[in-house]
Every structure is written in structure tokens, then in C-alpha cells.
Design a protein around this nucleic acid. Structure first.
Lengths: 198, 198
DNA sequence: GCACCAGTTGGACGATCGTCCAAGTCCGTC
DNA sequence: GACGGACTTGGACGATCGTCCAACTGGTGC
């Protein structure tokens, strides 16, 4: 098995373990067992367990988050606010249906952010996420004949931040109606930053 | 030393350790060392390490979060939006100045939320936080002659969610100007949910 | 002064941790 | 078939983990 394939398999296994048992349960032995590999394979593919967890965060940021954010402006007939609300509501449904994935993402992200607390800004990891959401916002505006009054990239960051907050808050209290209400608040707030095209 | 005092001291020590070394570094030995107690004292005061960490989460939710949210509507001359923006901006300053505290809070919260993933909603833990923010919102509205068009408790939940999101996002990218921009977005969005009193 | 007990302690236990590395396996080449 | 080297393996290592409990402490009541 090529080293690259082995790395990918280990990343997938690490994500599965973190989802099931949490970051604390993601030991070297648990991950290689999940991947069906011998113990030594981990340090053959990665310098350390922490390197594997960092790679896992990158993977989940690139793939899973974008998949979660993809429906944000899914096509819905109606105004801009309704379009945004429907797409954002789909994220809540995804969160409620599979909370372990979002929980794993947050645990990995906080773990990685700890040893950069006193370091200069780490650009990049979120940039792709912002860009994707910004593109979706532009798409939604175009489809409903609106124009954004603020830079879509800026609005995208607001949206991503709020989705993160909705996630942590729902994880804390499991209040789904409240989460959906917050999503509608976000849709209205975003729509307020647009003007109807003439 | 009374058992209650011992518990409080252990909670304070646990919080200090999680801030410094993360949840993964919060072992029984690390906590009792921080508290200057012998190892056995932990299981004398708490049934297990996890019970101590849960108590630590309760303490940080009650005390520290409320302290962080207190300045949300600190008195500022100007309209409602400016008042809210100034108070929320103070939270960002606190976050940037002491990120370890917020990071510790989130780590403890996610840890506690994991073993309730398939359980019915756990009411209560956040309720006090929402109530305090709601009171601050009402205070700000009254001071500037506004009336909330939506229930303050609902708006408070939106605000708390967004502050959580601002925290995770800033921890990920350390983009302080962006965090402050999101705070202004939140202030404007909240203010839009009010009407000027006659 | 002695017995007693609630409170306190730190060593012991078995399990598990991340990492390393000597030994083993496999396949292409002479 | 014999050799060589790259790849793969799982046991070994020392450290640390959460928990338990037998021993010790200090003060109180007789």
C-alpha cells in the first residue's frame, strides 16, 4: 500500500474514532485498530499522533465542512431571506441528525488551536470555507435579484461564525427549535445587508 | 478543611490546569498538584475525575461566562446599536486578552456534551447565561428609549450563540479585525429587532 | 492516659499511553 | 536459488493514567 493511501486511511480512521469516542479516546492504538493496521504503521506514515490529528482536522475542514455548508443557499423559490433561511435550516437538520461529526470537528479544531495560542495568526485553514460560503451567498443573491451591500467574504465569515455558535449552543442544550430560530435570525440579518436590484 | 472548601479549591485548580495545559493535560495528578493537595484528596471530594470536570464546567459557566458577558451592554452614550456594539466589542477584547479561559470553557463544554449526545435535552446549564444577557439587552433598550420587537430571551440566545461562534472562529484564525466586524454585524442585527419608543 | 473514629494520605495496582526498534516479510535482481 | 534492500510488523520500554485502600494522623470523649 502506497504511503499516501495509508495516510488517507489513517485520517479516515482517526475521524471515525474521534466521532465515536471523542478526542480523548483517539489513541494511537484505537486509530490503527479502526484502520485495521498494525501499531507501527502510524509512525511509518506520520511523525507522531499529533501530526495525524492535524491532518485529520485539515481533511474534515476541507471535505466535511464544505459538504455541510453546501446546502446553505440551496435553491428555493421565494425571496433572498427565504432562500437563505431554507439553506441554513438544512444545516441545522444535518447537525441534529449527525452531531458527532460536528462535535469531532470542534474538538479537533480546539485541540489544534491550543498550541498556537501565542503564535501569529494562522491564515488559510478557514479561508476555503469562507470562500465557498461567499460564493453561495453570491449565487443566492443573483438568483433572487439582489446585490450584497457588504463584501460577500465578510458576510460569509459572519455566517460561518454564527453556524459555529449555533452548533456549540445546540450541543450544550439540544434545543432544536431555538437553533432554528437563530438560523432565521441569521437569514434575516444577512438579507438586511442586501439591496434589491433594479 | 471542610469538604465544600476542598471542592471549590479543586474546581479552581482544575480550571487553571485546563487553561494552561488543555483538557488532555487535566489529569488527576496534575489537578491535585495545582491545588497543593495529596492525590487521594480528589476521590475524597469527588466520586471521579469526570465529576470534578463537570463541576468545573458548571463553575466556569456560572461565574466566568457571566463576567465575560457582563459588559455586553455597558453604558455608552449613543443609540442602541452603538451601545450594543461597544459592549460586544469589549467581549472581543477580553477574548483576545485571555483566550485560554474561553478555550478552556469550550473544551469542558464539548467534553460534557459528548456523553449526552443521545440523551434528551439537558435544560438549565445555559439558561442563566441567556437570562443574564436578556436582562442586559432590556437594560440597553430602556437606556436608549427602545423596545424589543422579539422576546429578549430569544435575542439573548442568538447573541450568546454568535459570541460562541466569534470565539471559535477567532481561535481558529486569530483575525481580530474580522472578529470585531462580526461583532458590529451582530449589534446591527440585534438593533434591527427593536423599535424606537414614542 | 487510653481508646476510638472521622479525616487524610500517598503508595500500589493494573491498564493504557506514545514512541521506538530489532526482527520478520516480501519481492525484484543477479 | 541466493542475495539485498525496502517495507512492514508487533513486542518492549518507560511514563503516566484513574482508582482504590491500608496505614497514618490528630483530636475528642471517657
Amino acid at each position: 500500500m502506497p504511503v499516501e493511501d495509508r495516510r488517507e486511511a489513517l485520517v479516515a480512521a482517526a475521524l471515525a474514532v474521534v466521532e465515536r469516542d471523542g478526542l480523548g479516546g483517539a489513541s494511537a492504538r484505537a486509530v490503527v485498530a479502526e484502520a485495521g493496521m498494525p501499531l507501527g504503521a502510524l509512525h511509518y506514515a506520520f511523525p507522531s499522533l499529533d501530526h495525524l490529528l492535524a491532518a485529520t482536522l485539515d481533511a474534515v475542514t476541507d471535505q466535511e465542512r464544505l459538504a455541510a455548508e453546501a446546502p446553505i443557499s440551496a435553491g428555493v423559490d421565494g425571496g433572498l431571506e427565504a432562500t437563505l433561511a431554507a439553506g441554513l435550516d438544512a444545516y441545522v437538520s444535518l447537525l441534529v441528525a449527525r452531531p458527532a461529526r460536528e462535535l469531532a470537528y470542534l474538538e479537533l479544531m480546539l485541540h489544534a488551536s491550543r498550541d498556537r495560542l501565542d503564535l501569529p495568526p494562522a491564515p488559510g485553514r478557514y479561508e476555503r470555507s469562507y470562500a465557498v460560503v461567499a460564493a453561495l451567498l453570491e449565487e443566492a443573491a443573483a438568483a433572487t435579484g439582489h446585490r450584497w451591500a457588504a463584501p460577500p467574504l465578510t458576510l460569509a465569515r459572519h455566517a460561518v461564525a454564527m453556524l459555529d455558535g449555533i452548533t456549540t449552543t445546540w450541543l450544550a442544550d439540544h434545543d432544536e427549535p431555538a437553533a432554528r430560530a437563530t438560523v432565521r435570525f441569521l437569514a434575516a440579518s444577512l438579507a438586511a445587508q442586501s439591496t434589491k436590484e433594479d
